[in-house]
């Protein structure tokens, strides 16, 4: 049972109060995108064994979306932050690197 702290209301919510929305920081491909770009946006997923930046909605709480940096193997949560950003904020990057020095958010976060 995952327990994540909603950065909007500060509540330590458990999984049953939350709704997962998959990989974060996807860049939307609109009408101008090529077939390849659109396919990448819709389907190609990082699905890492390791640090995953993922969207969660505090569905049974304040209703706001946030992003969690979480390891999919140890389930360690490095931090959560509001969804209104295109890249993970510095404090999150630092928190992850404290445990995983090699972690590179831009490289890992990019969708090819």
């Amino acid at each position: 049972m995952l327990i994540l702290t909603c950065p909007h209301c500060g509540i330590q919510a458990e999984e049953t109060e939350l709704h997962n929305g998959g990989e974060a920081h996807l860049k939307r491909v609109g009408p101008d995108g090529s077939d390849e770009e659109f396919e990448g946006y819709m389907f190609a997923r990082r699905n890492p064994r390791g640090v995953h930046l993922e969207r969660w909605r505090h569905a049974y709480g304040c209703g706001k979306w946030f992003i969690a940096a979480r390891c999919t193997v140890t389930l360690q949560v490095f931090g959560t932050y509001a969804a209104q950003t295109t890249t993970p904020p510095d404090h999150i990057v630092q928190a992850v690197r404290a445990a995983r020095p090699d972690w590179n958010p831009t490289e890992e976060g990019a969708s090819e």
């Binding site: 709704h19 929305g21 939307r28 969207r55 909605r57 569905a59 209703g63 706001k64 979306w65 969804a83 209104q84």
Partner: peptide
């Protein structure tokens, strides 16, 4: 409603 909020909060905030 959730779909709308998703787009509003995560894409066009």
């Amino acid at each position: 409603h959730a779909h709308m909020e998703d787009w509003l909060q995560c894409e066009w905030w």
